[in-house]
């Protein structure tokens, strides 16, 4: 357990799409030990509960980390009002992130909406061997496409309304990929129905798959046992905790119809 409480200065705030913000913060203690897929639990003025927000990018050399979050309720709305220079009080890095394989493996990343940011750091590690499929409601909701492409990954977009890229579900793109090419591992984050479908496709093709899950959280460090999700342990559904044993789980072990 290597997490710390850090008062991180907000270096740069950008709005990537309507209601979606990117914060770059100076957080050297976190940046030096964090791994792709982990998260930070961020304090929000006037709220008891911190907001768990996944780490999007890590820059240990300059002690910086990046988060991308969507305004979903009061807490994230308050957070989105922070200005450059403000202090962001965070506990991080938390949870079990993505297990990254050898960079020579053929890795596929599938993200839906605000499930896209947690995949970026992991995708970077595979360079040109990463195939990235990102699904959004529409072109206006699109985020981080160039950020994925800059490391050489092949990026394809799907939109629900057909305003950009493939008109339909991002899982259709994955299906096509699995039919045509060899894939060693799939990493996915997004709405639960999407993840469930991806898990089924991965299983059918015998491809390893890791998914990042969400649940309402309390302490964020594994003490309060609030963020339970049923995970198979020796074939038996057992409550594990998204904050400590997750957020990334082996898709085969997730009980999808709980």
């Amino acid at each position: 357990m290597k997490y710390t409480i850090e008062e991180a200065k907000l270096l740069k705030k950008e709005q990537l799409a309507k209601g979606i913000f990117r914060f770059t913060v100076f957080s050297p203690a976190v940046a030096s030990v964090a791994k792709a897929g982990q998260f930070a639990n961020i304090s929000v003025a006037g709220k008891i509960l911190r907001r768990p927000i996944s780490i999007c990018e890590l820059d240990p050399q300059f002690g910086r980390i990046r988060f991308v979050f969507e305004v979903r309720g009061d807490g994230t709305a308050i957070l989105s009002q922070a200005v450059e220079g403000d202090i962001i009080d965070l506990i991080a890095p938390l949870g079990h992130g993505f297990d990254l394989g050898d960079p020579s493996l053929q890795a596929v990343f599938v993200g839906g909406g605000i499930g896209v940011p947690p995949l970026l750091e992991a995708a970077k590690s595979y360079g040109r061997n990463a195939s990235v499929y990102l699904g959004f409601r529409s072109e206006e909701a699109m985020i981080l496409v160039r950020d994925f492409a800059v490391r050489g990954a092949a990026v394809r977009i799907a939109t629900d309304d057909g305003s950009l890229g493939y008109h339909g579900f991002v899982t259709d793109l994955l299906k096509e990929k699995l039919q045509n090419d060899h894939v060693d591992i799939i990493y996915a984050c997004g709405p639960r129905p999407m993840l469930k479908l991806i898990a089924a496709m991965a299983r059918e093709q015998g491809v390893a798959c890791q998914v990042s899950l969400e649940e309402r959280m309390g302490c964020g460090i594994g003490a309060c046992l609030v963020c339970a999700c049923p995970i198979l342990k020796d074939g038996v559904p057992t409550y594990r905790h998204v904050c400590k044993e997750g957020p990334v789980f082996n898709a085969e072990e997730v009980v999808w119809d709980a």
Binding site: G218, L225, A258
Partner: peptide, 19 residues
């Protein structure tokens, strides 16, 4: 094993839990 999730809800100046 405890109760099925969600087990927590935020309230004005507090939380509800049902672990």
């Amino acid at each position: 094993e405890g109760n099925p999730p969600p087990r927590i809800a935020e309230t004005p100046s507090g939380i509800l839990n049902s672990v």
